[in-house]
């Protein structure tokens, strides 16, 4: 496997359950046990009700495109992959993640739709870290 030449995140301690899940191909999400809402990114306190009782649940790995853009200029390893499509994903469980979309043609952005269904997949980028990507599974 060619060495992964794009930015590799350094997991912080309180998001570790997400990264542990990612290594196993599972989407782990933080959920407040007081108001039952899922939030993203992982917090030390619920951003909705300010409870500190937060559990980790396995998400469905399904969502929809909220919005997207096609990057024609990038730096480092990503520069070799332009154009590529970045997107914000509305999780079925609530709140939103960012990603690079798979299963789309960056040269035909008009064929990509806000609202299109997407599914998560993970790519191992180092021994410790796997990153989530989302693939379009159905039009918007």
């Amino acid at each position: 496997m060619a060495e992964y030449n794009k930015p590799i995140p350094q997991p912080d301690p309180h998001s570790q359950p997400f990264w542990d899940g990612a290594k196993e191909g599972k989407l782990m999400l933080p959920r407040c046990t007081t108001c039952n809402r899922v939030h993203w990114y992982p917090r030390l306190i619920c951003p909705f009700c300010h409870s500190r009782d937060i559990e980790w649940i396995q998400g469905s790995g399904e969502g929809r495109i909220h919005t997207f853009a096609v990057q024609h200029r990038a730096f480092g390893g990503w520069a070799d992959e332009t154009p590529f499509v970045t997107a914000y994903i509305d999780l079925n469980e609530g709140d939103r993640m960012m990603t690079v979309l798979r299963g789309v043609d960056p040269n035909k952005p008009e064929t990509i739709k806000c609202g299109a269904k997407v599914r998560i997949e993970f790519e191992k980028v180092s021994d410790d870290v796997s990153i989530s990507f989302w693939r379009v599974v159905e039009g918007g």
Binding site: P7, P9, Q10, D12, Y41, A69, F75, T86, T99, I131
Partner: peptide, 23 residues
């Protein structure tokens, strides 16, 4: 951002603001 957006190749304001135009 370092953990959850930078790994996806966004760099600099243009690469972010474009998402607002699309929406």
């Amino acid at each position: 951002d370092a953990m959850f957006t930078a790994p996806y190749g966004v760099a600099g304001a243009p690469s972010n603001y474009s998402h607002a135009m699309t929406r």
